[in-house]
């Protein structure tokens, strides 16, 4: 007997992994949630059929979405995390002692419940005393905030399904308003490779660019995501992600990482020509 989990990366491309068993399968108010035990990638979280994280490569995603902004402004004290129900982003944030408050807003409480029980590797720090969990719509939460956060991390699903409103201009605008004058916004920015992902990436960049003075993207290599080539967005009211990189201060913290380092930080903002073209980057 063989069990395989398959995700369609496009209607003509499939990605499959052999699984030992299905640990969770349930329907929440928002989406279908599955957890598999796989042979190659350890536990795998799947929402509405789309792979979210695997135990084997989640460190790449979570280190890159957190340490890049933290190395630009190591004085960040108050952070808003939107989405991120698996807890991996919060886990990385809690490694900074000077962060005082982490508000995490996840629309689907069930995702957090499932991850706490079955994927402690990522969910282990959701009980940290600096963390406040809110189970509501991210757009609604951020709409009521003014001049409050040093950093907003949007760790969302794709721009269809329950994460759709986290890719809109009104969302980015309300994030701008919720950030302090030196605030930074980092977001899951889709992929340049397959057409539909690339369109989502273009649209997100266009909207962020119309709201923030600084709007850059950086790349990251995630083996289990479609094409493996993934992007994050870095937007800010004043910090340039390379010019203002504070290498010394970050390295002084001596945070042990598996993927991130400050050389890679600089390199990740160097992007291929076809991606620059897609984003009208130098114009």
């Amino acid at each position: 007997m063989e069990l395989w989990y398959t995700e369609e990366h496009t209607s003509n491309v499939k990605f499959s992994m052999k699984v030992d068993k299905q640990i969770v399968s349930l329907q929440s108010d928002f989406q279908r949630i599955d957890v598999f035990e796989s042979y190659e990638f350890g536990k795998v979280l799947v929402l509405d059929g789309f792979l979210m994280i695997t135990e084997k490569d989640e460190f790449i995603y979570h280190e890159m979405i957190v340490h890049v902004p933290m190395a630009v402004n190591p004085n960040i004290k108050k952070v808003l995390v939107i989405g991120a129900g698996d807890g991996g982003t919060v886990r990385e944030l809690t490694r900074y002692n000077n962060i005082e408050q982490i508000d995490m807003v996840e629309i689907d409480e069930k995702v957090v419940e499932v991850c706490k029980e079955h994927i402690p590797q990522t969910a282990c720090k959701l009980t940290d005393e600096r963390v406040n969990l809110y189970f509501e719509d991210g757009l609604k939460f951020v709409r009521t905030k003014h001049d409050e956060y040093d950093l907003i991390i949007v760790d969302s699903t794709d721009p269809f399904g329950p994460g759709e409103d986290l890719f809109t201009k009104e969302f980015y605008g309300n994030c701008f308003k919720a950030l302090k004058e030196d605030g930074i916004l980092v977001n899951q920015h889709e992929s340049p490779y397959y057409t539909n992902d690339a369109i989502a990436m273009q649209r997100a960049h266009e909207k962020i660019k119309s709201v923030f003075e600084v709007a850059r993207v950086y790349q990251v290599h995630i083996p289990t995501y479609p094409s493996g080539h993934w992007m994050f967005g870095f937007a800010s009211k004043k910090y340039d992600p390379i010019k203002h990189l504070n290498e010394e201060a970050w390295n002084f913290l001596n945070i042990k990482t598996k993927y991130y380092n400050t050389d890679l930080h600089k390199g990740s903002f160097a992007i291929p020509n076809y991606v620059k073209e897609l984003l009208n980057y130098d114009k």
């Binding site: 757009l139 609604k140 409103d165 009104e170």
Partner: peptide, 8 residues
């Protein structure tokens, strides 16, 4: 929510 946020 999108409508409300856009109006804001």
């Amino acid at each position: 929510e999108r409508l409300i946020s856009a109006l804001a």
